[in-house]
Structures are given as structure tokens and as C-alpha cells.
Write a protein that binds this DNA or RNA. Structure first.
Lengths: 394, 394
DNA sequence: GATTAGTTTGTTCAAACAACCAACTCACAT
DNA sequence: ATGTGAGTTGGTTGTTTGAACAAACTAATC
């Protein structure tokens, strides 16, 4: 209510942002096309564009093709790729993933840094090294625009509220880097940024209003896009479906959680226990499965069933247009996905929600963070922005 | 994006609606107060109000008190209660509930009509009787403004897509009454309207962004308010939590649903079976429980546990500010509610979501429908409107 | 010449503003 | 007690402002 447009100034600001969003989403695009898309007079668009150009956000790319019945060639406009860059991090269990992106979401660099067993205070200097080395090579006009961190855990008010494997050492990342660089710094749950990635980087999802991204890593969480907005919940804990318990009419004491049965960790541990092995990794499971190991096959068969059940429950809870699975294990064993779909199809009464695997899950979390922090840098949190999907770079 | 305000006309329309919303939410209110609340110039508010008065939506109520340091008395403005009325129906298992409301949400009349065992085609004449008798007594300027129906089942695109106990007989209610009266006609799931009731009629929830209303009747469903908007899902099936299945690592065949364990029906049937009785009703269960019957006590103890589990799962799925329970059984046995809270508190790790019983659940569904259809009549679907909570009338 | 892209110049109209009137409170003098 | 005037607040009236718009222009193409 209080954010509603009420006077000419606010209207003007919003129209400027609408033009910027059009350039973002349809670049390269001409003024006249923006005018048609937004139902704004072409002279209005020209004036608004002039403002954006003065700020440096956009630039002309040269001329496009004229219409085939004659007429002046349009001037193609685009986001200024040399305006500045964002730095996006993902605190994985083994690696710190580091990505540098431009304003348009293009990947400028990507790197993995081994951090297994390190504490956050030991990781901080490594982050600073990355920031410094990127900064040294930078030739953009505005430099660093913002920093995002994908957190495997829950986040509220930019603070980590639960972190299963990385000890936060009472470090306030947001405060530290905001002080240091005077740019937006953003912490967000990994399933949430993954969901934002699907919304903003995947053109196939452009028209979808509701999406659920189920992330199966060491735990299980869902990122929720509801009405094209990220739903974090009141305390940033929406979609913590891994904590769900079974309602079966007669349980006692502390009931077991979904995560205990079918997170990647749970599957690996189960196989490890049954085979009396130690220190097994995902790669071991993949290898065993491909070798036809019976223990592994049966564990993964149960995994398939359980994931199907989780999808079924998510479909009933959220009724999305689509469900994405972000799971490194499934990414390496894609043949399991059709099996999941089959089991799910048997459970669902009428409506079948499409299921897809998130491709390149490392990139997804980083790009989702990139979207969120870029939006914050532009003050365009709620606009519809389609970023480039240049995941093939590098 | 396409619905964004872009020109002066749209801005003007929105500001008119903002003024109307202010009158709605804070009536009686003066022009100067609206001006301050909306940060609009007082002359602008006067002009916008003039428009609304010409349309008949608002009226002056007389003068208010002057400030205690002197100054002219304000003129108090309010919604015109004689503008028109809405008719709101709830298809219960035993009764058809009928409510007439004015533009402000005040209850003008309420009635239950016995419909047990009747088909929809037999109920239709009864509905028409109610509409006719209300219309005959009407003295408003615009008469019938809209009709809403609360459906115990799922609804998509104003069509019933699933109806567990009432056979819809292929009747298209929306089409039939729109043709007949040329007013908005609205069908909505009963848990959803109940959630809308909590949002719009309960002033205590004014600031809450996310709410879950769990409806436990013959089935179990949840109405979801997310970011202060009703989330219906892509097919109107969001919140169908009664269909959730247990993920326990080793199930086969069709797994049992939550509804099978702890809907009101399931509880009654279980007690009935164990006591070898027939045709038991909720009242019988309440009586048996109050008489200290052991079978009933143990069934309700399991019910308490299961409801706590459902709340816990809902909290993890949606992370709301509050959970409401709309359950006639709990309304009649309110002493169970603290027990539910206790079991839930033991399960939840850190964040405890407040739990409340929806008071007067019959009224809740009707008033929720009233809100939705009134909004449609006014073209103010997305505005924040606080309706009056005159549930004590009658 | 017909057509399309973009600019310039002047118009429009809803919100903001300024100045006003209306009606009240309170302090103080009578 | 009562009359008066200064100060305050609610609301209206007439004018100004400024962002979108419209029309007439230039530029560049078929």
C-alpha cells in the first residue's frame, strides 16, 4: 500500500525502470519497440532512455535492420556490459564457488576454491583474494556493484540462522563486506537462489507464476517462487521440507524427518553402513551403481520412491506450474529421473506437475545470487528481469 | 508488468481506489487524515473523494471532534452502507449457510437451510428463494452486487474441480448466476475463503504477511495467505495438505494420506468402528469425550498428536506468521488446543509459530467469500481492505 | 513517394501548491 | 459570565507544475 505510485515523480521513476527492464529483457532492442511494448509514447521513451544513458546503465550497439518496406534503421540499445560487475559466492561443503558477472548476468569468470575442513575465518582471506584479483583486472566504469553468498542453511535478515556444516564463527558477512566495499551484500539460502535462477535465467520459465525448486544436497530444501516472487517466509524458513515428519496416526517421541531418509547424505551413509565402508562420496555411489551393485541399486530405488513422494507432497502443498530438482546425485545419474516421474505419476490423482532437473547446479546457485544482488544494486527488486543465460561461457 | 501504472489516467484511478481503501479501512475518517495517511495533498484528496461520492460508494456521517487546541471540526466520511449488498453461500454437508452483507462487510442477515441428502439441482431453488426474499426487502441504491459460494472441494477458473460429498450435477453455478443477475459470481474453496476471512475481517492480523488456515472438516485443507495475497496455486490446489503422504523410506503401493488419519470424518469413523456404532455425529463424539469415554479419549489424543504434526509440517513448508485452525470439532472441544500447542512445541526446534482457533467457523467462510466478491464488485482485488467484523450481529 | 525511427516543440491534465474561508479552542480582559 | 482575538485545524478555490502525450518535424531506408 505504501509502496504504491501516487505522484508524477514516482510514476516517472517507475517508467524509467520499466524502460530499463525492457532493455534488460529484450536487448538488443530499439526505442520504438520499447514504446510499443510498454504502450508509452515514443518521445516519452526517448526521454526516459536519455536519463538511463546519462547514468551509464545502457548503451547503443549500432543499427539494426530496417523494415523491408523502407524506413529508417532502428538504433539498437543494450545494457552497458562495462558498467560494473557483481561477485557471487557459494559455500559448498568441499569448495567455495566464485563467479564474477556483469550487469547483464553474463559469466565473466568462474572458479572453485578448495575449502574442505576450513573454518569461515580461514575462508575469509580466500574470498578477499578473489575480490582483490578480480578488482585488479577490472576495467568497468563503476567496478564492484554487489556481493552475494549462497548459504547451505537458513538465512533471515541477511544473517545465517542455521548452518549444518559450516561454522559461521559469529562472523557477520553482510556487515563486514558492506563496510568494506559500500555495496549491497546479500546472503540467501541455496535452494532459494536456485529457484531465482530458474525464474530469471531460464527463458523457458518466463510465463510461469509458481515454481518449486527442490534442492537435494546434504539436506533437503525447497526454493519457492510464488506469483513470480521468491517466497522466503516470515523467518526465511519457507520450503524447509526436509524437516517434514510423517503423519501416520501413531508416532511417539521425536519423529524422523524426511531429510533423515533421503538427502544425498542419508543415501550415502546408508550404503556406506550396509557395505561397512567409510568416507564414501557421491562419486563412489555413482560408480557402485554403474557397476550394478545390489545394495546401491536398492538404496537408490528407495531414493527414487522417496523423491517421488516429496514431489507429490510439494505439488499438493504449493500447486506449482513446475518442479525442479537440483541434485548433484541426480545430475550424475539422470536415468533415475524418468523413474521418479513414473512413481510420481502413479501417486498423483489428476494434475501432473512437470518435473525437470536443474542443469549445472553449481552455476544455478551463483547465478541466482547474481540476480538478487544485481536487482538490489539497481533498486529493481520486484521488476521482471530476464538475465542472459550465458552458462556456456568458460 | 502490463498492469503497472504508466500514465496520468491510471495514476488517477489508483489514487481514487487508495482513497476508497482508506475510507474502508479507517471509517469514519476525515479528508485531512486520508491526506496524511496517503501523503497526498488535501486538495487532491478532496477532488478524489468528490468522484467517489458521485459514484455513491461513500457518504458523510456528520462531524467529528475538533482537536483540543482548536480548529475546525472534521467531517467524517464512511462507506455508504446503503449502496448495495452481496449474497454469500456455504455448501455445508448438512446445511446451506446463507449470509447477506453490505458493502462494508456488515452482516445483514444469516440463515441455515437444511439440505442434507439433497442434490445440487434440488438445492438451486432454495438458493433462488433466498435471493428473491432478500431482494424483496432491499432498499439499497444498487441492490445485489455479487454472489459467492464456498465450496468444500477444489475450484479452478470458477469451476468445481473436485467435490467430495456434494454432486455438482454438471451445474455451472458461476455461469448460471452471472447470466441471471449480471453481477460477479465467485466460487472458492472453503479453506481459502476462511484464510481470506482471517486476513480481512480480523484486525489483529492487519500487519501479518503470511498466514496458514488449516481447515479440518470432512477433509483437511489449508488456505494460504502469502505476502498478504491468497495463494491458490496454478490449478487452485495449493494447500491441499490433506493429500500429503508419509515419506518413511519404505512404503509400497498407494500410501495413505493425512486425511485418512485425522480429518474429522476419520476420527468419528474410527470411534464408531471401535464402538461398533453407526451414524455417529460430531456431537456424539463431544458427548462421549465429556463423559470420559476411553475409546474417544484415546482417539482424540491421537488426533491432537496428528494435528500438531500437520501444523509442524505446515510451519516448515510455508513459514507463516501464524496458523489458524478452522475445525468445528476443536471449536466444541477448545481444551484440546493447548494440548496441540504443547505437542507442537516439543517438535519445533526454534521458531514457534503461534496457533489460534478460528472463531465462529461458519461465519468465517461466508465472510471470506463476502470479501472476495465485494472486492470483485469494486474492482479492488489487490487492495488492502479491512472489513468490519460485525460477527456479533444476529 | 511511401515507410519507419527518432527528435523537437508545444499541449494536456492530475497532482501540488498557495491563498483563502470556515469553524473551532483557549487565554485573557472586561 | 461573557466577549474578543490569537492561534489552530479542516476543507475549498484558483494557479502552477511537470511528465506523458501529440503533432510536426528530420533522418534514413526501400
Amino acid at each position: 500500500m505504501s509502496s504504491a505510485i501516487r505522484n508524477r515523480m514516482q510514476l516517472h521513476q517507475q517508467n524509467i525502470q520499466s524502460v530499463l527492464a525492457e532493455v534488460f529483457n529484450h536487448q538488443p532492442i530499439s526505442r520504438i519497440e520499447i514504446s510499443r511494448n510498454l504502450a508509452l509514447n515514443k518521445s516519452t521513451v526517448s526521454a526516459l532512455y536519455r536519463d538511463l544513458k546519462e547514468q551509464g546503465y545502457v548503451e547503443e550497439l549500432g543499427e539494426g535492420d530496417a523494415s523491408n518496406v523502407g524506413g529508417r534503421k532502428p538504433v539498437l540499445l543494450a545494457i552497458n556490459r562495462r558498467y560494473g560487475y557483481t561477485m557471487n559466492f557459494d559455500f559448498g561443503y568441499r569448495h567455495l564457488h566464485v563467479m564474477q558477472n556483469n550487469l547483464s548476468g553474463d559469466v565473466l569468470s568462474y572458479k572453485q576454491v578448495n575449502v574442505k575442513g576450513l573454518t569461515l575465518k580461514q575462508i575469509l582471506p580466500l574470498i578477499n583474494d578473489e575480490l582483490a584479483s578480480v578488482s585488479a583486472k577490472d576495467n568497468t566504469s563503476h567496478g564492484l556493484l554487489g556481493i552475494s553468498f549462497a548459504i547451505h542453511g537458513t538465512v533471515d535478515h541477511n544473517q545465517v540462522t542455521y548452518s549444518p556444516f559450516l561454522d559461521m564463527d559469529h562472523v557477520d558477512l553482510a556487515d563486514y563486506y558492506t563496510q568494506e566495499f559500500q555495496v549491497p551484500v546479500l546472503l540467501e539460502n541455496e535452494a532459494n537462489v536456485s529457484a531465482v535462477y530458474e525464474r530469471d535465467f531460464n527463458k523457458a520459465n518466463d510465463q510461469l507464476k509458481n515454481m518449486v525448486t527442490i534442492s537435494i544436497h546434504r539436506g533437503i530444501g525447497a526454493g519457492l517462487i510464488i506469483n513470480q516472487k521468491l517466497h522466503r517466509g516470515t523467518h526465511g524458513e519457507a520450503g524447509e521440507i526436509g524437516r517434514s515428519v510423517s503423519i501416520d496416526g501413531h508416532w511417539d517421541g521425536a519423529p524422523r524427518k524426511v531429510e533423515d531418509y533421503c538427502s544425498e547424505d542419508a543415501v550415502i551413509n546408508q550404503i556406506q553402513d550396509e557395505k561397512h565402508a567409510t568416507n564414501m562420496t557421491r562419486d563412489d555411489v555413482v560408480r557402485l551403481f554403474n557397476e550394478g551393485d545390489e545394495v546401491t541399486k536398492s538404496a537408490l530405488a528407495a531414493f527414487v520412491k522417496n523423491v517421488a513422494g516429496i514431489i507429490y507432497n510439494a505439488a499438493n502443498n504449493y500447486d506449482p506450474d513446475i518442479v525442479f530438482l537440483n541434485s548433484p546425485l541426480l545430475e550424475e545419474l539422470p536415468e533415475l529421473e524418468p523413474q521418479i516421474e513414473q512413481v510420481y505419476a502413479k501417486m498423483a490423482p489428476s494434475i501432473l506437475v512437470p518435473i525437470k532437473l536443474t542443469q549445472n547446479s553449481h552455476y544455478a546457485t551463483l547465478l541466482g545470487g547474481c540476480s538478487l544482488v544485481t536487482r538490489e544494486a539497481l533498486g529493481m527488486e520486484d521488476a521482471k528481469l530476464n538475465f542472459e543465460a550465458q552458462t556456456s561461457v568458460l
